[in-house]
Amino acid sequence: MELLKHSEEENEESLKHFEEKIERGDSIEPRDTMPEAYRKHLIRQMSQHAHSEVIGMQPEGNWITRAPSLRARQILLAKIQDEGGHGLYLYSATETLGISRDEMIAQLHAGKAKYSNIFNYPALTWADIGAIGWLVDGAAIVNQVSLQRTSYGPYSRAMVRICKEESFHQRQGYEIMTKMIRGTSEQQQMAQDAMNRWWWPSLMMFGPHDSESPHTGDAFRWRIKRHSNDELRQKFIDKTVQQAEVIGLTIPDEDLKWNEEKGHYDHGPIDWDEFYRVITGNGPCNRQRIAHHKKVHDDGAWVRIAAAAYRERIKKQNDNQ
């Protein structure tokens, strides 16, 4: 997009406008002057968010051909297609900050840009598809609902669109868990086993405790982030416990109990050693996820090359007419 500049104002003046806008609660748009650190913070956060949507298709895609019914297969396909779409909304929003999609993908492949740690865990049984939809998407929704009010306009608009679509994801996951818990004893065990494996990584999705979170200060000042990691995590726990109880699943936390005084659930300690082990590349699927993404990207290169060649041919034909 071309920007028609009539006046060259002092950079300082523009930055003052930025601070005022943030203060007023206005949204920041791509052509507004913004501090370089704000732009960098957003690129890091939004590209990580986009990559998460796309890498998140892998553990679920693994189950398309093995879904237990045609209905389940159609639903899973639609959900995974949504995740791809969400990745595209977010890449498109991130591009407005002046980074190209090529660069973002290169950063992902080089390990410079991350994706949500949760997708480094495998989906071992069909119950895992239930747990991913219910818990992983459920945790993502809590975070994304909060981000609908983030200060950067394109990010906020992408979040609004994504939130509208995500609630089906969570409900389909919860439905799978419900069906399995009402099934044979083997199916019940699978459901509980999936719950046991996905609960703690889901809590880790909100990131380190507020006291340990390195980026929090700026993110709050610029209203990129509206709620802290711990606040969001608590919100997720509070609403999920009841859902687990209704269908008779046990949350794998002996310390989990209602705290009357606070009006929230208390929970046991999170194993941050595991979190850091996985996030630094040593989870069960880290290498596999990136290797697969690279392979598909490279395998698809001919499509992009052919499309560009076709465009050139059409252009030439039009020029000759």
Binding site: M1, E2, L3, L4, K5, H6, S7, E9, E13, S14, H17, E29, R31, D32, T33, A78, Q81, D82, G85, L88, Y89, E165
Partner: peptide, 25 residues
């Protein structure tokens, strides 16, 4: 990408380079 749930009845697409925007300043 944008109409998986019947959100639209019609679409326009425009090359991004063809759009001219006013300067926020």
């Amino acid at each position: 990408t944008y109409t998986r749930r019947g959100e639209g009845t019609s679409i326009w697409v425009v090359p991004a380079t063809a759009i001219v925007a006013s300067d926020p300043n």
